[in-house]
Amino acid sequence: MEKGESVLYPDERYFFYITNDRECTAAEVVYEANDRCNQENLIAQLKGGCRALHAPLHDLESNWAYMVMASLAWNLKAWWALTLPETPGRWREKHRDQKQSVLKMEFKTFLNAFMLLPCQIVRKAGRIVYRLLGWNPHLPIFFRLLKALRC
Rank of each mutant, 00 (worst) to 15 (best):
V7C: 14
D11P: 11
D11C: 09
R13W: 01
F15L: 10
F15H: 11
F16I: 13
Y17H: 10
T19W: 00
N20A: 10
R22V: 05
R22W: 04
R22C: 07
A27P: 00
A27W: 08
A27V: 03
C37E: 15
N38M: 07
A44G: 13
A44R: 03
A44L: 13
L46P: 08
G48K: 11
C50T: 09
L57E: 12
L57T: 02
L57W: 02
L60A: 09
A65D: 09
A65H: 12
Y66E: 14
M67W: 03
M67E: 13
L76G: 07
K77E: 00
L82K: 10
T87D: 14
P88A: 11
P88E: 15
R92Q: 14
R92C: 03
R92D: 07
K94Q: 13
K94I: 05
Q98C: 04
L103Q: 02
L103V: 03
K104P: 14
E106H: 13
N112L: 15
F114V: 03
L116V: 06
L116M: 14
P118Q: 02
V122T: 10
V122H: 05
R123V: 04
R123S: 06
A125K: 10
A125P: 13
I128F: 05
R131C: 09
L133R: 13
W135T: 01
P140H: 00
P140N: 02
I141S: 05
I141D: 01
F142W: 10
F143L: 01
R144L: 01
R144K: 05
A148Q: 02
A148M: 04
L149A: 04
C151Y: 08
